[in-house]
Design a protein around this nucleic acid. Structure first.
Lengths: 344, 344
DNA sequence: AATATTTGTGAGAGCGCTCCCAAAAGAAGA
DNA sequence: TCTTCTTTTGGGAGCGCTCTCACAAATATT
């Protein structure tokens, strides 16, 4: 049995309250007493009981990272591990803890009911002080519920709602830079493999593609747009649909899809970048390693995570602030071999 | 303010105790009363307060997944996301929650002191009912502490200690199968790129390599063994050291390292599998997609995770059992193009 | 019909902490 | 020296739940 406050108090010859003050760095404790109490704490290895503390303070110092059902299939995309690492690091440095809620398919039963149940348990059960939502579909009911229940939350990825705080990378500009690079290389039939269009990231990257073309006075040919789902397999399927259109270049909205596309292009007997240039998005570690190394858009994923945590903790510890926080981190073009160097 | 037990009780015209019984499915409540209480619970959206409950029961229904400092650099290896997904799924289906503790470098200060602090907070603070440790180095002090504090835990990866429960895949046999396959294809100068040798998985896969050779009566040439660290970069460096030895085949202890090795082989102007055959380990999703598709050893990573959770929850809910649980899941050879088909 | 047994329910204490309030102890002013 | 303030300390209540125990009601036993 670990020692309690009471026991520490007795050993130090003071009251429960005084020990509590020492633990919580309350200033009005005589230095001499404080030292005596600390000595006993060290000696006994005393650690406040988290649940007891939460019950009294209504705070848990735990935040949740929720990754909804719709995206757990993408979980092998290196995006998530990096995000998680960023989030975990930030939590560590703020002395918060991280609870991970994935809603994946593996389980029996209606999984949206399942998601509901988990929501109920975790959030209304006050396990968490606040949550981070990563790349949920725009219509996910969780947003309404969080707003309704008044639970502090930050979305990782843009979310168009005036009361929602979010952190995102500049997807529109990133995509635009990618396509502009292809335009500069002289390409005119540029296709795109989009992300899922019910996610903001998917929409925004498509929007960047459109902007790059129209600002050059080029028409957007809808036949050169194929929807993917951020998976390698989805990238392959989309590329298959695009091939008959004979594009000279493809902008894939994720590196993983770009890799799938390259595979299909090669299987069709064509070369990358000679016959079809390819640009990806994300700059996952793999991008520099595949053959040919991928030209892509780098996004600071771990910063995204730590920034989201910082914002969320701000909301938790300072609920007064009525300003809605929106952070958009810059993206950057990384030129490698997969887009070739075409003469203008 | 969410409703409390007391309030629900008043609304249902019963006592606090009765509502508690209903929530906890205690049998001795009249069906009619039970129904009435449930109605109020549904109506009010009542959810028991997690902290209050934990305080009374000394259980949190939260388990931790701890990934120590030494391996967070590998976190982009698809191994971890898959493991995490397996663990998360299993948690969901047992109605447990998952707390993730990564100890990575990002942070300032002596990080082993940091790790200590976190240990103290999370584990002695009774946040968790038990923990899963993934691939910690054999000498990590956490094992001793857990044992000492009597905290239920299961290690993911073999751990040679008579009181420690673990779940692992059959690394020795897997490696052996990989190398035997190369032997069958007629190779004789088979090199290996090992994992870090302070981890069991690294040692065991090397052991499998040795066994395959010696059981064929072949000598093990230490110059054909290069230590890697499970990263792509580590794989490249190890391959560079091996190239001068002119191996005709390489067994890499992870797919990620195999991919690094292939790159080096090609940069040296050699072809895979024609000049050097390569076999990996893990069967990560990427393995089937790279050029050439990787022959590798499949390990059921998500099963590993869910099995570990199952064991751990067993330990938590049934602390009496004095048997030490050890589960070893089978591995499987997956033949693709990277090892070629050599005549016998 | 009287007693014994089972079943259902409520009251109370307690889990370990925080925080308010009032008392005690010093410090300062008269 | 006595009052008035300030600083430091202890006691008590309360956070929302569970769980034991005792009592009331319903059923079974003789």
């Amino acid at each position: 049995m670990p020692p309690t406050l009471e026991e520490v108090a007795k050993l130090a010859g003071v009251s429960r309250s005084t020990v509590s003050r020492v633990i919580n760095q309350h200033p009005s404790v005589r230095p001499e007493v404080r030292e005596r109490v600390w000595a006993v704490i060290r000696e006994t290895g005393y650690q406040p009981h988290a649940a007891a503390r939460s019950l009294a303070t209504r705070r848990t110092r735990v935040i949740g990272l929720i990754i909804p059902q719709a995206v757990t299939t993408l979980f092998t995309d290196p995006y998530f591990p990096i995000l998680i690492r960023g989030v975990a690091d930030a939590c560590n440095s703020f002395q918060y803890h991280l609870m991970l809620s994935l809603f994946s398919q593996g389980q029996a039963g209606n999984s949206s009911a399942r998601q509901d149940e988990l929501y109920q348990q975790v959030l209304r059960g006050q396990y968490l002080d606040g949550v981070l939502i990563s790349s949920a579909p725009l219509d996910d009911p969780i947003f309404r519920r969080l707003l309704q229940d008044g639970i502090p939350f930050v979305v990782v990825g843009r979310y168009p709602h005036e009361r929602i705080h979010y952190v995102d990378v500049d997807n529109v500009n990133g995509a635009r830079m990618a396509v502009e690079h292809l335009l500069r290389l002289g390409h005119e039939r540029i296709a795109t493999i989009t992300g899922p269009l019910n996610m903001c990231a998917g929409q925004d990257r498509l929007e960047g593609y459109r902007q790059a073309l129209t600002s050059r006075g080029l028409a957007v040919d809808e036949k050169l747009i194929a929807e993917g789902d951020f998976t390698e397999q989805g990238g392959r399927m989309a590329m298959q649909r695009l091939l008959p259109q004979r594009p000279t270049a493809v902008f894939a909205a994720s590196d993983v899809m770009a890799i799938g596309a390259i595979k299909v292009i090669r299987d069709a007997g064509l070369r990358v970048p000679d016959d079809i240039a390819v640009v990806g998005f994300d700059d996952i570690p793999l991008a520099s390693v595949v053959e040919p190394p991928l030209t892509t858009i780098r996004q600071p994923i771990d910063q995204l995570g730590s920034m989201a945590v910082k914002l969320l903790i701000g909301l938790i510890e300072n609920p007064e602030g009525s300003t809605v926080h929106r952070v958009v981190l810059p993206t950057e073009l990384v030129i490698r071999a997969s887009c070739g160097i075409r003469a203008k």
